[in-house]
Write a protein that binds this DNA or RNA. Structure first.
Lengths: 226, 226
DNA sequence: GTAGGCTGAATTGTTGACAATCGTTTGAGG
DNA sequence: CCTCAAACGATTGTCAACAATTCAGCCTAC
């Protein structure tokens, strides 16, 4: 039995949060076929709110549902994971450009301070890439909201990041290049601070492209098996 | 009372389709506050499947729902509509590039044939921009699926296009430049046929950028009031 | 021995009734 | 006359029982 992470305003919200974190954290393995009644007893819910949450999750592509046949967690292939990074490349590139145009000075200062925190975290917890992964998520999160493009932020935060994080937890992808990534983050923020949208977009696209190539290399080497 | 557009496999699917088309077609005006029981009698449904569909639609951003306070159709401002086109620019640019890399020859031939059909439509129904709008939708639809990027196609077809179409029906935006748009379409397909991904991306981005500027101009002129 | 169809059980989809919450209206007080 | 508060009404959120469909196992036929 798992409790709700945030105080949800309704049972359906609670169910949605529970299931989402369960999927992202890997408590519900990809491809796993799950019954509704089992989920109900596991999360202390009734089937009404649960079904509502299942509908939302299906619409977001985190699970697939065949009529009368049950639901199962979506399983993303290696090729599809790389495709995800291709989408991130162009969307976050746009986010960086618009953040350079619109992000308030105060938020930029906060973001710089956050990067310092990340640096300390990396130095302290050497090798523990987990913090770096969380820090990386935080960075991209702030850029997305900083773009002041409602729909763009919604698509990045609501759709893409959850799917990417799903594999972050499992593989700790960016292990090995924490300092490198941090340096790239810094240069992106510098470009945003100088209100150079074109440069910010270029740097962000290159940053994500590098991350993608890193994953691709590991897959080719057989280190990552998906 | 409105019937389901496609044969849905379940009541919830039916509800989802009905509501989606109703919102897109404008039968449910933006900002309109609607009660659940009213929707039930209108679409011949019970509240269970309806609520499931509402959850899906909320997750897709077509309506907003406050607990115990009812649901209302989302109302997009002029600024947000332009932001949508910014997102389309980068995402469909990527779609065009990947379509150039992966779209089968047969699909490309079909697409070319479709363009010929569009041309006849424009010549026959002079000034009636409706057909052009539908044709335009068809074109972008095919490029998206042609990219063979599952998530990209899902995001374009499932999220963005419905919001754009919502305003197409109301404003018939691209009225006035049907032949221009068709020519741009042709050049994009030519680039795809020649497997020139870089050029296809460039042309697609410019095409959507032109459409955005067209809308922006009309808004400034006061022709379009949103 | 294998392929095909059939029956039964389990699971999902649906329905209607019940409980909780919010908005509105009405009344009293300043 | 205006403001604030409380109760009413309406609407949403939740629940448990019913109906429909699929899947698995078994039997039969070839």
């Amino acid at each position: 039995m798992i409790q709700a992470p945030l105080q949800a305003q309704t049972r359906a919200d609670e169910a949605f949060d529970c299931l989402q974190t369960a999927i992202v954290k890997g408590d519900l393995a990809p491809g796993e076929k799950i019954g509704e009644v089992e989920l109900c007893s596991r999360f202390n819910l009734t089937r009404g709110p649960l079904r509502e949450a299942l509908g939302r999750l299906e619409s977001r592509g985190l699970l697939v549902r065949r009529p009368h046949a049950g639901v199962k967690v979506v399983s993303v292939s290696a090729a599809e994971l790389l495709e995800l990074y291709r989408i991130r490349e162009v969307m976050e590139g746009l986010a960086a450009r618009q953040a350079a145009e619109r992000m308030p000075d105060e938020e930029i200062r906060d973001l710089l301070a956050t990067l310092d925190t990340h640096e300390r975290m990396i130095e302290e917890a050497q090798g523990q890439a987990y913090y770096q992964a969380e820090g990386d998520y935080d960075f991209h999160h702030r850029i997305a909201t900083g773009s002041r493009n409602t729909k763009l932020a919604q698509m990045l935060l609501g759709d893409l990041y959850y799917m990417v994080r799903m594999y972050r937890y499992r593989l700790s992808t960016s292990a090995g290049r924490p300092h490198l990534a941090l340096g790239e983050h810094r240069r992106i923020v510098e470009a945003i601070a100088q209100r150079d949208g074109e440069l910010a977009e270029f740097l962000m696209k290159r940053h994500i492209n590098a991350a993608r190539q890193n994953i691709e290399k590991k897959i080719d080497e057989g280190v990552l098996t998906i």
